[in-house]
Simulated assay, not measured.
Amino acid sequence: MIAIIATLTAKEGSAQKVEDALAAAAPAVRSDAEPDCHYYQPTRVAGEPNVFKVFEVYEDKAALAAHSATAHFAPLKELFATELSVPPVIDILDVFG
């Protein structure tokens, strides 16, 4: 298994759009549409209203690649291009224990 932490920094005035888009995508990611996604939780950094972290756990790298190719991820790609102040930072983690 692999996990990722995606850090998303919204432009000033765009935090609500980012939050809404992440919240809208979450049910689809957690559904049977992505059976190899074991955990998906968008969060906001306390005290930093424009910074979001998304915690995700996938069966393998293929499942992560499949996630980014889904129909419900397409609106997020568009959002990242227009509403983030910097490109997403994706930390890929090996799961153990």
Rank of each mutant, 00 (worst) to 15 (best):
V57Y: 13
T9P: 09
E78L: 02
F73C: 08
L8I: 09
F55Q: 11
P49S: 05
L22A: 08
V89K: 12
E34H: 07
V57C: 04
T43V: 11
L93Q: 01
H67N: 06
P87L: 11
P49T: 15
F52K: 13
I5H: 10
I2P: 01
F96V: 08
A6Y: 00
V54K: 03
D20T: 06
V18T: 09
V51I: 13
N50Y: 10
A10M: 00
A63D: 04
L84V: 11
L93F: 11
I90S: 08
R44K: 15
A33V: 02
D20H: 11
T7M: 07
A10K: 06
T70P: 01
A21T: 15
T70I: 04
A71C: 14
D91N: 05
V54W: 00
G97D: 04
S31K: 00
E12H: 15
D94N: 10
L64A: 05
G13A: 07
Q41G: 04
E34P: 03
V29K: 12
S14W: 02
V45T: 13
C37R: 13
P49K: 10
F73E: 03
V86H: 06
E12F: 03
A6S: 01
E19C: 07
A62P: 02
D20G: 13
D60K: 08
Y58W: 01
A26Q: 08
Q16V: 06
P35Y: 03
A46R: 14
N50T: 15
E56C: 00
D32W: 07
V86K: 12
V95E: 07
A81Q: 13
G47E: 02
I4R: 12
G13I: 13
P27T: 04
R30V: 08
L8V: 08
L84K: 10
G47D: 15
Q41R: 12
E56K: 10
A24L: 04
Q41N: 13
A81H: 09
A74N: 08
S14G: 13
E19L: 12
D60L: 10
E19P: 10
D36L: 06
D32P: 05
E12N: 14
P35G: 01
A46Y: 12
E19Y: 06
E78D: 14
A10W: 08
L79N: 09
F73G: 03
D60I: 03
E48L: 01
V86I: 00
L76N: 07
S85F: 09
E59D: 04
A6N: 00
F52G: 10
A24W: 10
P49C: 01
I4W: 07
A26W: 13
I90K: 01
A25M: 10
V54N: 03
P35L: 03
E48G: 00
S68L: 07
E12R: 15
L22E: 11
T9A: 09
P75Q: 03
V29R: 09
A21Y: 05
F55E: 11
Q16L: 03
H72M: 05
A10G: 10
H67M: 03
